[in-house]
C-alpha cells in the first residue's frame, strides 16, 4: 500500500516537475507576451496541481493535506486571476496581441 502511494506520488511529482520545466521553456521560447502567458499558465495550473497532489499523497490523511488542499485551491483561484489582471494591464497599455489573422468574431450574434 505504502509502495503504491509512493509510486503514485512519485509519478505525480515527476510529471509535475516535467510540466514546470516545459512551462519554463515555453516562457522563454514563445514569441510574444500573450503567448508566453499560455506557457506560464501551464506551470501555474497543471504543474501546481500535479506537484501538490503528489505531496498530498505523501502527507496522507493529516492536517497537512488539508492545508495543501487549501493551498492548491487558493493557487487555482489566484493564478488565473493574476493572469487576467496582467492581461488587462497589457491591453490597457495598448499592447496588441499578435495574431495570425485578424480578430475573429466567433460569436454568432456578433457575426450577424
Amino acid at each position: 500500500m505504502n509502495i503504491a502511494i509512493d509510486i503514485a506520488s512519485w509519478v505525480l511529482l515527476t510529471l509535475g516537475g516535467v510540466n514546470l520545466l516545459i512551462g519554463g521553456i515555453g516562457v522563454l521560447r514563445m514569441p510574444d507576451f500573450y503567448t508566453r502567458m499560455h506557457a506560464a499558465s501551464l506551470t501555474d495550473s497543471m504543474g501546481a496541481i500535479l506537484v501538490i497532489l503528489g505531496i498530498m499523497l505523501q502527507a496522507g490523511l493529516s492536517l497537512a493535506t488539508v492545508k495543501l488542499g487549501a493551498i492548491l485551491a487558493f493557487l487555482l483561484l489566484t493564478s488565473p486571476t493574476a493572469a487576467n489582471a496582467l492581461a488587462v494591464s497589457a491591453l490597457l497599455a495598448g499592447m496588441k496581441p499578435r495574431t495570425g489573422d485578424a480578430v475573429q468574431r466567433t460569436n454568432h450574434e456578433a457575426d450577424a
Binding site: M30, P31, D32, Y34, T35, P97, R98, T99, G100, D101, V103, Q104, R105, T106, N107, A110
Partner: peptide, 8 residues
Amino acid sequence: VSPQVIEI
C-alpha cells in the same frame, strides 16, 4: 503557434 483573439 497561431494565436487568435476571439470574443465570447
